[in-house]
Simulated assay, not measured.
Amino acid sequence: MRELDYMERVAYAYARALQSTDSTVWVNRRIPTDARVKWEQCLDIGCAPALFGVKDTSQISREMIDRLAKDPRFVWMSVDRMAPHGRAIDPELVNPLTGRRMTGSTSGGPVNILRGIHDLAIGTDGGGSILGPAIATQLVGINGKGLGLVGRQPSKSTDGYPLTVGIGAISHTFALARDAIEVLLGRPLSGRSEGLRIALDEAAPRGALATLNQHFAKVESFSKQGAFQREVGIKLLESLFEHSDVVVSYEGPVDVDAYSDSLATGQHVDDRGGKFLLRCANIVNATAVAIPDEHPARGFVVMAPEGYQHACNALSVAESLAAQSSKTDLYEDYFIRRMRVEHSGFFHLEV
């Protein structure tokens, strides 16, 4: 990419951010200067700096934001909307992919990625607030709770579970989300993953089984029946971790047929909301990765127990699934390529 092309992309993204008052609460007015400086710093690296947004929550410390903002590969674009009171849906924001209410509570960041405002959203996850929004918008999401990336103070889910939120990243590529987690963590995420024992959801597409059988030692199936109930899902996930290194659940469609939100449903959440083990991963302190497949608002949730090596295992499995997963050409054209090259009428001339 040429510098002129990159700065043009930044200009259009900046204009969109200023206009998108429903999904952004603050826009970095220094973005043109910051982007040019980072471009010059990245000349030796050979990559264009990625634009990122941060969820509007006090759970993410300024120190953590600065780790990304100071890295030559990332430019801070915005602070992104959070669903009110950490809700599982955002009643005031629409999912650009499904046309339904946006999944929460990391709601504004994924919307801004689909709008072309930035490439990466930093968010928090208490009961699925990174994994759910990622799958709902067909993006990659990583919750770094199992790596020790946690919020600043204790919290609780909308159905009363005490918890500490995990901090993570959402992006349109697995590589960019992982790079962001490595910067936040301060160390690379790599290691041997041979001989892994994988528990695979029996509802997963056949291609997933073939992929995992090709790359890893042992794959056994499990049923997630009833796991839309959080207490059932927690017990199932803890049980699976006793004899599996990595658990892979297939989930969705997220918040399409019904909303998986205990407030909107009067505490009665059922399987039509498409959320199962993604609601439980943070509560059991797992490292968890959401990988979309070709079906809108559906995807895999890859989970491993707490700890660095376990996290590397989860990322290795997730990367293999990401390499085999694909989005439709229409999705790529509309949300990834076109939204980054068109100005969409943001600049008007008066005669």
Score class of each variant (00 low, 15 high):
116 G>I: 06
118 H>A: 07
118 H>C: 13
119 D>E: 10
122 I>L: 15
122 I>P: 03
125 D>F: 01
130 I>R: 00
131 L>R: 00
132 G>R: 00
133 P>N: 04
135 I>W: 01
135 I>S: 00
136 A>K: 01
136 A>G: 02
137 T>H: 10
137 T>R: 00
139 L>R: 00
141 G>V: 01
142 I>S: 01
144 G>E: 13
145 K>D: 06
146 G>D: 05
146 G>M: 05
147 L>T: 06
152 R>M: 12
153 Q>K: 12
154 P>M: 08
154 P>N: 11
159 D>E: 11
162 P>M: 03
163 L>P: 08
166 G>W: 01
167 I>S: 07
172 H>S: 06
174 F>W: 11
176 L>A: 11
176 L>K: 06
179 D>Y: 07
179 D>C: 11
182 E>A: 09
183 V>H: 14
184 L>G: 00
185 L>I: 08
186 G>Q: 07
186 G>V: 05
188 P>V: 04
189 L>S: 12
190 S>Y: 10
190 S>L: 04
190 S>A: 07
192 R>V: 08
195 G>S: 08
195 G>R: 07
196 L>I: 03
198 I>A: 15
198 I>T: 02
200 L>F: 11
201 D>K: 02
203 A>V: 09
203 A>G: 09
204 A>V: 02
207 G>E: 15
207 G>S: 12
208 A>V: 03
208 A>D: 10
209 L>P: 02
210 A>K: 12
212 L>F: 13
212 L>I: 05
212 L>C: 06
217 A>L: 12
220 E>S: 15
